[in-house]
Amino acid sequence: MNLYYRIFWSTVLILASILTTNKTILASTKNTSLLIDSNNNNSYKSLVEKAENLAKNTINQEFKNNPEITEITITILGERQSQIVPILRSKISRAEWQKNAEIDNLTRYFADAKYLLKFDNDNQDTPKTQPQTPDSSPQIPAPPPPSPNTQPIVPQPSKKSPTPPTSKPPIFPSDEEDSEIDD
């Protein structure tokens, strides 16, 4: 009877470990990408604030609705004038979120998105004007055109034929000279 008792409990323990292992496997990471339309935004700053609020609300909702999720990676994309660019990406665990529900420290902001979405003239509060030049600004006269007498001199090819070389061709020893040198 002792043998059956041991087999029973070892089977129960094996099944319990398998079930708890599968439970930890079910805990997962969720990757989410969301797109916001930024054609109506006047500034890049307001677009980033809108993206941060959307990320916070989405993370809060995912952790509340899905208890098996242990970590969320969320990417907020912005669309403006047919350009789609990532604005921010947050990666946060459930423990970090419960400790502090702010994503600022755990978020990567894509600074180039401002220029890719053509927010580079972000000072729309003040209209950009071209600096006015006074009418009495000094005028620099253009240089005078060259006169016909001052045409550049272009070297002309010489009409002489080249002179033949004055050096003598090299003299190589012949077989006849080699026969004179006998020991």
Rank of each mutant, 00 (worst) to 15 (best):
I59T: 09
N60G: 05
N60F: 11
N60Y: 13
Q61E: 15
F63A: 00
K64M: 03
K64N: 07
K64D: 12
N65E: 12
N66R: 14
E68Y: 15
E68K: 13
E68H: 13
E68M: 04
E68P: 01
E68I: 07
I69E: 06
I69Y: 12
I69H: 05
E71C: 04
E71D: 05
E71Q: 14
T73V: 10
T75F: 02
T75H: 03
I76P: 01
L77G: 00
L77P: 00
G78L: 08
G78E: 10
G78M: 08
R80T: 03
Q81A: 04
S82N: 14
V85Y: 12
V85W: 12
V85I: 15
P86W: 12
P86H: 12
I87P: 07
I87F: 07
R89I: 14
R89A: 06
S90P: 00
S90D: 03
S90A: 08
K91S: 05
A95M: 04
Q98F: 10
Q98W: 09
K99T: 08
A101G: 03
E102R: 02
E102Q: 07
I103Y: 03
I103P: 00
I103A: 00
D104K: 13
D104E: 14
T107K: 08
T107P: 06
T107F: 10
R108M: 02
A111K: 13
D112V: 02
A113E: 08
A113G: 11
K114V: 01
K114T: 03
Y115W: 08
Y115S: 05
L116M: 09
L116K: 14
L116R: 13
K118A: 11
K118L: 12
K118H: 15
D120T: 10
D122F: 08
N123P: 02
Q124M: 07
Q124C: 01
D125M: 05
D125P: 00
T126C: 00
T126W: 04
P127T: 09
P127M: 00
K128A: 01
T129F: 12
Q130T: 11
Q130H: 02
Q130M: 06
Q132F: 13
Q132H: 12
T133D: 10
T133Q: 12
T133K: 10
D135I: 08
S137D: 15
S137L: 06
P138G: 03
Q139C: 03
P143Q: 06
P143I: 05
P146F: 09
P146N: 08
S147E: 14
S147H: 09
S147L: 12
S147K: 13
P148F: 05
P148C: 01
P148E: 06
P148K: 04
T150M: 09
Q151F: 08
Q151L: 07
I153C: 03
I153P: 05
V154T: 15
P155H: 09
Q156I: 02
P157F: 03
S158W: 11
K159G: 11
K160Y: 14
K160C: 02
K160D: 13
